[in-house]
Write a protein that binds this DNA or RNA. Structure first.
Lengths: 114, 114
DNA sequence: ATTTTATATACCTATTAGTATATATGTCGG
DNA sequence: CCGACATATATACTAATAGGTATATAAAAT
């Protein structure tokens, strides 16, 4: 499970982490904020947050003057996964015209396989 | 990691399994076929295949007259994941007009969060 | 000084990925 | 029919990882 794509899928394979991402979509949140609704200790939430951070879904601001390190969602991290899944859809679900439409997009030119 | 969505993400969090799916996209394959290019023992491949099967990505035909049980891709299994990711894109990547457009759709009314 | 926020460490348990090995079952050549 | 081979599965084992806890520590806010 070392490559970046695997890390992203693995990070999402947990309902707690998906719930955290859903809340981070609305606003930046500190560790304590994230832990509040999650019947779980703070260190446990910190571990989940670290998984999301390693996978690239989240960055945390540096503690300049405050102790709090709010986590912020990184939208771009989704593109790698979305590309892979889109490729699957094109292969398997997509009708031929849909494949044709995909091949016209700029992303299609430089795409690698997993 | 027990819910269906988690099982799907977890199943894709492994390069070996993604490679198996990629080959299954082209044709049905038996366990021996799948194992051939994968420097791994057959029982190990059988375990990976079982993970894909439990996640719903694959079904296997019943052994009526033959010993071989070719695995077949189940395209529909992708929709649950694709829906979740699409919801993320709408939330996070989408511009405001895109969000507005989504909120007009019927799915938006009854949508639950993960 | 106390409280809040965050992190680090050590520990436990369950799961995952892989192996080796054995066993059932069906195909095919005599 | 029978023995050999191919396909698939089951079991038992090891090693590593994941998810969680408790506890201790550091630093900043009040």
């Amino acid at each position: 499970m070392s490559d970046s794509l695997s890390a992203k899928f693995a990070a999402l394979a947990d309902p707690t982490r998906r719930a955290m991402l859903a809340r981070l979509a609305l606003s930046e949140l500190t560790l304590a904020d994230l832990a509040k609704p999650l019947e779980m200790t703070v260190p446990a939430v910190a571990k989940h947050l670290a998984v999301l951070e390693r996978a690239g879904f989240v960055t945390r601001s540096r503690p300049t003057k405050s102790v709090a390190r709010p986590a912020k969602l990184q939208v771009a991290a989704f593109s790698e996964m979305a590309d892979w899944i889109e490729k699957c859809r094109v292969h398997w679900e997509g009708s031929f015209d849909r494949l044709a439409a995909y091949l016209e997009t700029p992303e299609a030119k430089g795409a690698e396989d997993a």
